[in-house]
Design a protein around this nucleic acid. Structure first.
Length: 572
RNA sequence: GGGCCUGUAGCUCAAUUGGUUAGAGCAGAGCGCUCAUAACGCUUUGGUUGCGGGUUCAAGUCCUGCCGGGCCUACCA
């Protein structure tokens, strides 16, 4: 039995996420986790909220709440939504956890011990009115290049010129609008990842099967200009993990916190400890997933994320791990995704554009979204959500091909034989052909799922559903029943068994419907169809079942138009 | 500006890494079936692979130049 560690990129805490956030990391990670569990492998699937940083502080301030309270509240909301989407995390942690604080401080101490931390004094913009240092992009002003009056301190969005905040004419705080700004001297810790450039380069080179999107971004950062740059890993903020060297104070760093991108990936590890602690397990329980000296040697570690996260996962975090010189597990496969667009533009949290996760669940249950999003996941390039496409795909695939199959065969059986798997007759060449066809496709499905080829997996699964309808059409039990009821019984028996098989195979995509199918068939047997010939006889003659309610109601034109209108504007 | 990705049927995507006649699903057309959520099955229309050059026995695939879409560019995360 293989052991697979799976992490999804951590959703940021500052609000409810839209569908784009879901499709780019959590949902495919869940698909993979469910599949691997279904195959009988041991899985630890972790995710958490990413809670530190300036945007969290600002969002809390806007909500009029202490930042810790705000984060706790939003964490619970996000956890609830994740549960409703069926995201099967073994633990959904928090980057603000004590476990992460301890580990982050510990790793910083190790990095310092190994000569990989440098203290650098720099000058940053301080806003007296806001009482805080301002990150570059929170300073607005007039672009010295093009005259655009809403240029940000890092870059002018109008002329794309990269800027330094001090370049701006009439700079002001993007938070309060205050012009009472000054440049102050402040000291920060830098991670000297440039010293690890060659190690990282070799490590990336050894990953031949990673998506080109992943490696090309990493390579760019490694080789662009002067190569990999050192990175500041501390900030002048109140909210975050206090800068300490392990348990000890870090002289000169009082009142500062670690940079959110330093502690967020460390939460992947700390989250495993949160999981163990929450279940009263000893440290060895999580260390066997993360410490190669404590049993994690044979673990396969897979990360899922959107493309914007790639540099931190291919460079910064590995630099932290390598630099600690401790035997932490490194990622084996890094699956990255492009973006999902909404009806001709981008989903945007800040602009409130698109469909948000809570709204999505208000109008339809998780399986509809899971199926569409996964079968259209932006794997090779950005993809686009449109209501027409959503309606068409969902109606055709889920309602017509799968749902109607379940409906037609259970109802036919009930009418002709009653609500139990009928006895009599034998499988012939037609049935053998179905078994062969299924075997070929199931093996292909497994291959695509193992390779995390999400779209291809969805296509293959759909083709597997189609086999059921093809079989009924060619076997035509409604005809054979008139002349040879025994033969019809065998045909129905096979078709009813397909429902159980479909439930098992489809569970990673549509877990709710899958559970309802098993429930209707009144079976707990969710064993994977390794041997298809055996699997089509799992439900034996006499086994009682019930006709389920419609698995997937169709989306009507009226609904689609209604939603189209409702979600055409923005949300505040 | 620099780097990377991308452009294939009306739509969403494939194409075993240079190898027969570029394939699926949806949408369209026709036929069949009547168990079923007016569902299902079969057949079928539809392509100058963004455009122009080049390399090769052979190019959707490699090179080059244009055109379009997108991402990243290190202090948002």
């Amino acid at each position: 039995m293989a052991r697979i560690l799976i992490t999804s990129a951590l959703p940021y805490i500052n609000g409810i996420k839209h569908l784009g956030n879901l499709v780019g990391s959590q949902l495919p990670a869940d698909l993979y986790a469910r599949f691997q569990r279904g195959r009988g492998n041991e899985v630890l699937f972790l995710c958490a909220t990413d809670e530190h940083g300036t945007p969290a502080e600002l969002a809390a301030a806007k909500a009029g709440k202490p930042v810790a309270d705000y984060c706790a509240e939003l964490h619970d909301i996000q956890a609830g939504i994740a549960r409703q989407f069926g995201l099967s995390f073994d633990h959904f942690g928090r980057s603000s956890s004590p476990q992460n604080r301890d580990l982050t401080q510990h790793l910083a101490a190790k990095l310092a011990e190994n000569g990989l931390i440098e203290e650098i004094s720099e000058r940053q913009v301080y806003s007296n009115a806001d009482g805080r240092f301002l990150p570059d992009r929170y300073i607005e002003g007039t672009c010295p290049n093009c005259g655009y009056d809403k240029a940000r301190g890092d870059q002018c969005e109008n002329c794309t010129k990269q800027l330094d905040p001090t370049d701006l004419i009439d700079p002001r705080s993007a938070i309060s609008g205050s012009t009472d700004l000054e440049v102050r001297e402040t000291k920060h810790l830098y991670l000297r990842q440039s010293l690890l450039k060659d190690d990282l380069d070799q490590w990336i080179d050894s990953k031949k099967d990673w998506p080109i999107l992943t490696t090309s971004i990493a390579k760019k950062w490694l080789h662009d200009g002067d190569g990999l740059q050192d990175r500041g890993i501390t900030r002048d903020l109140d909210w975050g993990i206090p800068v300490k060297k392990g348990d000890e104070d870090w002289p000169g760093m009082e009142g500062k916190v670690f940079y959110v991108w330093f502690d967020a990936p460390i939460e992947y590890i700390a989250c495993a400890k949160e999981w163990a602690d929450a279940h009263g397990k000893p440290d060895s329980a999580w260390e066997r997933w993360w410490r190669t000296d404590k049993g994690a040697d044979d673990v396969k570690y897979v990360q899922f994320m959107g493309k914007d996260n790639v540099p931190f996962h291919t460079l910064s975090f590995p630099a932290t791990i390598l630099g600690s010189k401790e035997p932490w597990k490194m990622v084996d496969h890094l699956k990255s995704f492009n973006y999902l667009n909404y009806d001709g533009g981008q989903f945007s949290t800040s602009q409130g554009r698109g469909v948000f996760q809570d709204q999505a669940l208000e109008i339809l249950s998780a399986d509809y979204w899971r199926w569409w999003l996964l079968s259209h996941v932006p794997e090779s390039s950005d993809s686009e959500f449109t209501w027409e496409n959503f309606q068409q795909s969902v109606n055709k695939d889920l309602a017509d091909v799968l749902g109607n199959f379940v409906s037609r065969i259970t109802k036919f059986c009930r009418a002709k034989f009653g609500e139990a798997v009928p006895d009599g007759g034998e499988f012939g060449p037609t049935e053998q052909a179905v078994i062969d066809d299924l075997t070929t496709r199931i093996r292909a499905y497994e291959g695509h799922m193992d390779a995390m080829e999400v779209r291809k997996s969805a296509q293959e699964l759909r083709a597997i559903w189609v086999i059921g309808n093809e079989y009924l059409q060619s076997a035509a039990p409604w005809s054979t029943f008139k002349t040879d009821p025994e033969q019809a019984a065998a045909q129905v028996r096979l078709a009813l068994n397909l429902i159980r098989i479909y439930a098992v195979l489809s569970a990673p995509f549509i877990p709710d419907a899958s559970a309802r199918m098993l429930e209707a068939m009144q079976t707990d047997d969710d064993s994977w169809p390794d041997d298809v010939a055996a699997a089509v006889t799992a439900l034996a003659p006499g086994h009682a079942f019930t006709v389920p309610d419609v698995l997937f109601a169709k989306i009507t034109d009226e609904q689609r138009e209604d939603w189209q209108t409702r979600f055409s504007g923005t949300r505040d």
